[in-house]
């Protein structure tokens, strides 16, 4: 089946098997391997990308379902060599260690602030419930997201 999407601002058009998951399409066909896979039960959120601005777990979407959509992955977040404020916040607050959850976590965090620009700590924690991290204990991730919200507000 044919799928035509815009990924990080670039138009893509490919022939894919109907059962191809969006995450596999992005990694294997488009060649963007920044989006990771961490599970087989849609539990971990490592594969989170923005689909028309909304965060989705790209292992739960078929590539063909994304037909016509705009997709943003971790590779498309920084612009003109400038880190996105969320990326910068993760760096400043040591919100990543092994980096495996990071692409998904950052995309989920961007989407979270989009929906709720001034969240409480509890709201950040609830909002990131679908994204697992084994390294950070979430402490610095939560701190980074709150700092990014703060930075955007000021």
């Amino acid at each position: 089946m044919k799928v035509a999407v815009t990924v990080n601002g670039t138009k893509q058009e490919h022939e894919v098997e109907p059962r191809t998951l969006l995450v596999h399409y992005l990694r294997e066909v488009v060649g963007l391997t920044g989006t990771n896979i961490g599970c087989d039960t849609s539990s971990c959120g490592a594969c989170t990308v923005l689909l028309d601005g909304q965060s989705v777990k790209s292992c739960t979407v078929l590539a063909v379902q994304a037909d016509g959509a705009e997709i943003t992955t971790i590779e498309g977040l920084a612009s003109d060599g400038q880190l996105h404020p969320m990326q910068e916040a993760f760096r400043q607050h040591h919100g990543l260690q092994c980096g495996y959850c990071t692409p998904g976590m950052v995309m989920a965090a961007v989407s979270l602030l989009d929906e709720n620009p001034a969240p409480t700590e509890a709201e950040v924690r609830e909002g990131l419930e679908g994204n697992l991290c084994r390294c950070t204990g979430y402490h610095n991730i939560v701190k980074a997201v709150l700092a990014a919200a703060e930075g955007a507000a000021s």
Partner: peptide, 11 residues
């Protein structure tokens, strides 16, 4: 890690 993601064996 923040801009391109890491390079793990699968990728």
């Amino acid at each position: 890690f923040l801009t391109g993601g890491g390079t793990y064996v699968a990728g």
